[in-house]
Design a protein around this nucleic acid. Structure first.
Lengths: 220, 220
DNA sequence: ACCTGAACACCGTTCAAGT
DNA sequence: ACCTGAACACCGTTCAAGT
């Protein structure tokens, strides 16, 4: 009796068997994340991700509709990390201008530190509404900025009408700096400032405030 | 005698023979441009470009080192068009602020009108310094903006220290708007303004000037 | 339920061979 | 000098078949 009697036969591959016990999906996204960081979003291939994780090239299709859906999962992870970075950056400041500026600096810092990941998130290979979880994660990151602006408006210390209307230029500015810095385009035209510094200066200019010298003087 | 006696045998393919009389290079870039506009930079393939132009898939390698070099030629064409657009936009204005704003609007207008072309130019598939002609064309477009700022500084109507330092935020802002608009990201977070309008508003804010209502009132 | 093997159509790139 | 034909290694995706 008992058709389930399967003792662990190959002890060398024990870990692998356990790893894939319903978690091939996570294993693949982890592998994809590493591959994207190693060879860039262009060099990433679904086949290699499958090989690395020890399954056939057809196996991923049990967990992802296609390559784009796996990349969407990678992008989603990126937005979660970016969200955490923005929350951290915003927490360390009290005034609305400084808060927005520090969030912008944090945004650019994360982007240039993870250029390939950032390119997956914004490289245009994925249509975000096709992947609800990705769209949600992206929206959450944007909401961090939106909330900071709304708080500033509410306190009266920031002038403006609508938070969403004000968030457009701010996001565009930091995304533009991140994107051009990653592509090397700023450097190519002789702009050699550190991107994070450039973000701070640009945001101060956009918000119409004099810029603090480098890092904030104190946190008290 | 005469080994060159080759009368036109296949009249149907006469045009094609003439077309490739030393101009396969141009034929391929033209074909690539159409393909990129039709199927996006992602869907573009060197093989299909060759097929469309009526040569074998190996033929392009006589004229381009690899796929990237053909894409670089396409990107170069894009920067030439963008340059022309910026010159046009700048010519129609006299004050430095208005000039810069109109150039920014022109930049975004061209980008959203040619989204796939723009993605080839900034999608990160090409390393610009590897293709001197491309780098030159890109620099020329950036110089349009640089010149407008330098003129404003020279006339004293624009305040600031260094033109290149001021160009960074301006370019980043319009590139960010163009890029996020093309990716649909602005729409996804509820920012439904026309990108060109957003560019005008954002630049006015960055430059610290009150914005003119929509289009400039008159050209005199 | 989940994975493999094999197949399909399609790439980018190389190279000997043709004219 | 310029192009073809054929080959190579590599994709993404599908599907019958295995356990």
């Amino acid at each position: 009796m008992s058709g389930k009697n399967r003792a662990p036969r190959r002890s060398a591959e024990q870990q692998r068997d356990i790893y894939h016990h319903g978690d091939l999906k996570r294993a693949l996204t982890d592998s994809a994340l590493v591959l994207v960081a190693e060879k860039g979003p262009k060099g990433f291939s679904l086949s290699e991700a499958a090989r690395r994780v020890g399954v056939s090239v057809a196996a991923p299709y049990r967990h992802f509709r296609d390559k784009a859906e796996l990349l969407a999962a990678v992008a989603e992870q990126g937005f979660l990390q970016l969200h955490a970075t923005l929350v951290d950056a915003g927490d360390s400041e009290s005034g609305p201008h400084e808060r927005i500026i520090e969030m912008g600096r944090g945004y650019v810092r994360w982007a240039v530190a993870h250029p390939d990941h950032y390119q997956v998130m914004f490289g245009g290979e994925i249509v975000k509404p096709d992947h609800p979880a990705l769209l949600g994660a992206a929206t959450r990151a944007f909401d961090d900025l939106l909330d900071a602006i709304a708080m500033g408006l509410g306190s009266g210390m920031l002038r403006g009408r609508d938070a969403r209307e004000m968030a457009g230029p701010v996001w565009s500015l930091v995304h533009g700096i991140a994107s051009l810095a990653i592509g090397g385009d700023l450097r190519h035209v002789g702009i050699r400032d550190d991107p994070e510094t450039l973000a701070g200066r640009s945001l101060a200019q956009l918000l119409g405030v004099a810029e603090a010298d480098s890092e904030p003087a104190s946190s008290s």
